[in-house]
Every structure is written in structure tokens, then in C-alpha cells.
Design a protein around this nucleic acid. Structure first.
Lengths: 157, 157
DNA sequence: CATTTTAGTAAACTACATTTACCTTGAGAA
DNA sequence: TTCTCAAGGTAAATGTAGTTTACTAAAATG
């Protein structure tokens, strides 16, 4: 038991080799997700709920069509449409007819909607700054580059 | 617009610098999550639903107490208890009284429950194999090590 | 011009999580 | 000891959010 490391999150000891890529990605991803919601709620956007976040995910909903947002979020277009309706009521966006295709609609962020998106990016950049300080600039850049290579690859299709 | 890269997932072009750590972690984490559920369902565990997965997450439920599983999954103990009840009905685990503390209970995986967990690990290792092939062994190990440093750090608390 | 596919919408249904509430046990204070 | 309170577990009610089913209109296809 010499190569085991202490872990404050669980009662047991956990070895590096036991950590598979699933947990290694999921844990920080969820931590970031929770933090963004929490800070957004604290920053004057208290009427935003967790499912709303699916819409503001990179690269954001502005100019997109509902169907595209639905598949981006991995949900049905009906569910997405409800979310969009909710956000429209709350004044974060509006849906208007798309010029050209008369059956299609297009999502446009309002000023308040843009403010949310900008704030989310601010929070993310603050998080990146912290990671930078913890890992060191060189390793943090390396981490992002490696993740970007994954993102580009067929692995995540 | 010279440093922009094409992206098949979105209709727009996306630059590396625009990708923040949130999306870089979330996208592959979700892809892995979906794949595990899909392959588990196809591997004879069709009665497992998405929320059930919260229980089988690393390091697994065997020997743990419900309350610990609840905080690990970030949900209320009541919600966790329902999930456990559901999985117990399906024959994946059983809850028995913990020896010593008579108010506490302890979760034990059944043979079938252990089979699910083992299968999930197999799938993850298959995924790691693919990532290994795509990134190269050296870079893949580097990625895991960097993520493990994040996992150890106060960043994800 | 007829058929099929796609975008959008709405209602019914279902799943699942939180809230509220209660029981029991263990720990600590009085 | 005895009282009080915190913690683990459980259950029912409530609320939210998702899929399913169903429909309309427009574009694409033949």
C-alpha cells in the first residue's frame, strides 16, 4: 500500500492508477458548472435555473436556431422550446422569424441576455486564472492544448 | 481571420483561444457519460437509467453509506434513497444494517451490481485505449497527470 | 403536383428531485 | 441519569423538467 494517496473526498485511500479519465474529467467539469450557476445567481441573475444553463453554453445561443440549440444540448426540440420560452419571459432573449426561411426562427439575446453570457465568461476566466496559479502557466496551457486536441478529434463525436 | 479553425459541430468557425476550460472539460465528459450509459444498456443492463449512474460513479457504492453516496452525487439523501430503492428492486444492490451503528445502513452490490461496475470500468478502459491511440501514449499520460493534479488541488472543492 | 421531411409548437404524461415531516439512534449537556 | 439535539434513514407531497404524442406549416423531393 505504498503508492496510495490520501483523498479527503472519500473515506478510502485512492491510487492514481485507479482514476480513470471519466472521473478525472467529470469532477472538475461539475465543480465549474456548479460555481458558474452559483455566481450567476449571486450576480443579479437569481431567476436563472440550472436547466437554463444548457442554453448559454459555448458558443451561446445568439443567432442560432432552436433546433440547433436542442441538439447542442442533447435534448428534444420541444424541451428546448420550453426553455427558450421561459428565458424569453424572463427577458433574456427573444425569438423572431428568420429572414429567408419563413418556417425557421432565430434566437436573439437581449441586452440582459448578453450580460449573462459576458458574466459567465468572466467567471470562467477567473477560474482559468486560479488554475493557472495552481498548475503554473506552462502546464495549464499544456492542459488546455491537450483538451483542445481531444475536442478537435473524432473521440468526442 | 487567419487563426480560426473549422469546426464541424457548429456552423461558425471557432478559435482555440475562445475555448474556455469549462467547455473543454464538459464536452468530452458528457460524451463519455453518454457512451457508458449506451453501452451498459446494450450489454444486458437495459433497466439502468441515466440517474442510476450517479450511484456507480467512482469509487462505486459498495460498502458505502447512503448519506455519503448522496453528498458524493450532490443530491439530497431522500433522492439518493429513492435511487437506491430502485436499484435494490432491480437486483443491483441491497441495503443492510451496518454492524456497530444500529441507525446506519450499508450498501452492498449484488453479483449483478458488481458486474455493472466491472463493465463500466471495461468501457472506460476501452475509451482510454482510444484516447491513447489518438493523442499518443506520452501526451495521454500527461493529460491524465495534469487532470489528477487538478483533482488533488483545492480547485475542485 | 403529390409525398416526404423538417422546424416549430402545444398538451399529456412521466420521471425525478426538493421540500416537508417523522422516527430512531447516538452524543453531549445539564 | 435524563434531557436535548444532531444525524441517518425513510416516506409522502410537491414542483420542475423532460420525453412522448400530436399537430401545423413550409421546404425539399419525386
Amino acid at each position: 500500500m505504498t503508492n496510495l494517496r490520501k483523498n479527503s473526498r472519500h473515506a478510502t485511500t485512492v491510487a492514481t492508477k485507479d482514476m480513470l479519465i471519466g472521473a478525472l474529467l467529470r469532477v472538475p467539469a461539475e465543480a465549474i458548472h456548479r460555481r458558474i450557476i452559483r455566481e450567476l445567481n449571486a450576480a443579479g441573475f437569481g431567476d436563472l435555473s440550472l436547466p437554463h444553463m444548457a442554453i448559454f453554453r459555448f458558443p451561446g445561443p445568439d443567432g442560432a436556431r432552436p433546433v440547433v440549440l436542442a441538439q447542442r444540448a442533447g435534448m428534444s426540440k420541444q424541451a428546448m422550446n420550453r426553455l427558450l420560452g421561459s428565458l424569453e419571459e424572463l427577458g433574456y432573449l427573444k425569438r423572431s422569424d428568420a429572414p429567408g426561411e419563413s418556417r425557421a426562427r432565430i434566437v436573439r439575446l437581449t441586452r440582459r441576455g448578453h450580460a449573462v453570457y459576458a458574466r459567465a465568461i468572466d467567471i470562467l476566466e477567473e477560474i482559468e486564472h486560479e488554475w493557472n496559479a495552481e498548475l503554473g502557466r506552462e502546464d495549464f496551457v499544456r492542459l488546455k492544448q491537450l483538451l483542445f486536441r481531444v475536442w478537435e478529434s473524432p473521440l468526442v463525436r
